Amino acid sequence: MSQQTIKDRYQRALGYIVTEFGGRQKALNAARRTLGYYYPGQNVTKDAAQRTIAHGNVLASLIYDAD
């Protein structure tokens, strides 16, 4: 499991993208609340309630929008 920190221009952590087993990625805000998931097999991004919000990986935009 790897983690990428998403920071603003002042180097403050806005959130994290965690790559889980099987390639699934999870977006977390700075307080580590789940914002959504990216499923590479389906090539879709879903929100925390499992509703499809985009085709492709847009997890970083979920983090920026949550701020």
Rank of each mutant, 00 (worst) to 15 (best):
S2A: 11
Q4D: 15
Q4F: 03
T5A: 12
T5P: 00
I6C: 04
K7R: 15
K7N: 08
D8Q: 06
R12C: 09
A13N: 09
L14C: 07
L14N: 04
G15I: 01
G15L: 01
Y16G: 03
I17E: 08
V18A: 12
E20K: 08
F21Q: 13
G22V: 11
G23F: 07
R24I: 14
Q25N: 02
A27I: 07
A30C: 01
R32W: 14
T34C: 08
L35D: 02
L35I: 04
G36Y: 05
G36P: 10
Y37I: 05
P40Y: 08
Q42A: 12
Q42C: 04
N43K: 09
V44I: 09
V44R: 08
T45L: 09
T45W: 02
T45N: 10
A48R: 14
A49W: 07
A49H: 13
A49M: 11
Q50C: 05
R51S: 13
R51A: 10
R51N: 14
I53G: 12
I53T: 04
G56T: 08
G56C: 12
N57K: 15
N57D: 11
V58A: 09
V58P: 02
L59V: 08
L59S: 05
L59I: 11
S61P: 03
L62C: 06
L62D: 06
D65Y: 04
D65C: 01
D65H: 07
A66K: 08
A66W: 00
D67P: 03
